[in-house]
């Protein structure tokens, strides 16, 4: 039982990372119906920038966090402005292909600038151990869980109550009607990219604190697809919880069945789910006129 609880706990930790990235997929998708294949790379870039602030410029942690939260949306919005906005009006297929191109460009640029080395990311709270009953958690793992809870809550409140959040929901429901109501849909797309860069950037910092600031961090972007498919591409909160589920299933299957399943159990799960429900568990079936 103790072992089981520890598997669940570490599953929740890694699942929080998947969930945060899944959330940022969903934030962009629900506003612009574009699946951003470059999310893992945006996360990596933000984490690298933040690492430079912390280790080269020696920002203290209380200053580092707000600075990163301010810088991340700039990075996200710049990518949207440079690569995605000029494609508006093109088929979704072309825009998604552009995000794949952006992904490989960002990844290569980041590695060219920062090099291939793995570097530790030190924060004041890392290194301690928490004991909750039979479960052992490192302080940074606990921090991920707390971060996930806070971001989910904020995201929910943002989409539920704030003017911008409501405007983004309106854009996703009916772009023409939203335009008629005076909502600038281009600005909404820009906001979506900015906000999702914050969410995935925070995930990126936590990944580099838990493991290392490493040139293969972008893999987390691909590994988070199951989370957002499970929770619904158009539901940020659903994607977050999808991440937790995928994380726990991954750890349990690796622990009890076969070590090789850790990376792919989530993928197998979504293939099965998509076969039964082609629009995801919580996605809505589209009706199409010919």
């Amino acid at each position: 039982m103790d072992l089981f609880l520890n598997f669940v706990a570490s599953g929740l930790v890694i699942g929080s990372v998947y969930g945060l990235i899944g959330m940022s997929f969903a934030i962009i998708f629900r506003t612009t119906s574009v699946l951003n294949f470059a999310q893992g790379e945006v996360m990596m870039l933000v984490a690298y920038v933040s690492w430079t602030l912390a280790h080269t410029l020696h920002f203290p942690f209380w200053l580092l966090l707000p600075t990163t939260i301010l810088l991340a949306p700039l990075i996200g919005m710049a990518i949207e402005r440079l690569f995605i906005r000029p494609m508006s009006g093109q088929p979704i297929f072309a825009i998604v292909m552009v995000t794949i191109g952006v992904a490989i460009v960002l990844r290569s640029l980041t590695i060219l600038v920062w090099g291939h080395e793995f570097e530790g990311f030190n924060v004041p709270f890392s290194g301690g151990v928490f004991e909750i009953g039979p479960v052992f958690l490192l302080t940074e793992q606990l921090a991920v869980l707390i971060l996930f809870a806070v971001v989910s809550l904020l995201a929910w409140a943002f989409f539920r109550f704030s003017r911008v959040g409501m405007a983004m929901r309106a854009t996703s429901q009916d772009e023409t009607a939203a335009l008629l109501m005076g909502i600038d849909s281009r600005r909404m797309s820009s906001f979506a990219w900015g906000i999702s860069a914050i969410v995935s950037g925070l995930a990126g910092i936590m990944v580099s604190v838990m493991f290392a600031r490493a040139p293969d961090m972008w893999h987390f972007g691909l590994k988070s697809f199951p989370a957002t498919i499970l929770g619904g591409l158009d539901s940020p909160i659903g994607s977050g919880f999808g991440g937790l589920v995928i994380g726990v299933i991954g750890e349990l299957s690796a622990g009890y069945i076969w070590n090789g399943l850790k990376e792919i159990s989530g993928l197998i799960l979504i293939i099965v789910i998509l076969m039964v429900r082609p629009y995801g568990l919580f996605g809505e079936k589209e009706l199409e006129r010919v």
Partner: peptide, 10 residues
């Protein structure tokens, strides 16, 4: 190489 391929796609 990656940079070139990405730019070419875009």
């Amino acid at each position: 190489k990656g940079l070139l391929i990405g730019l070419v796609i875009i």
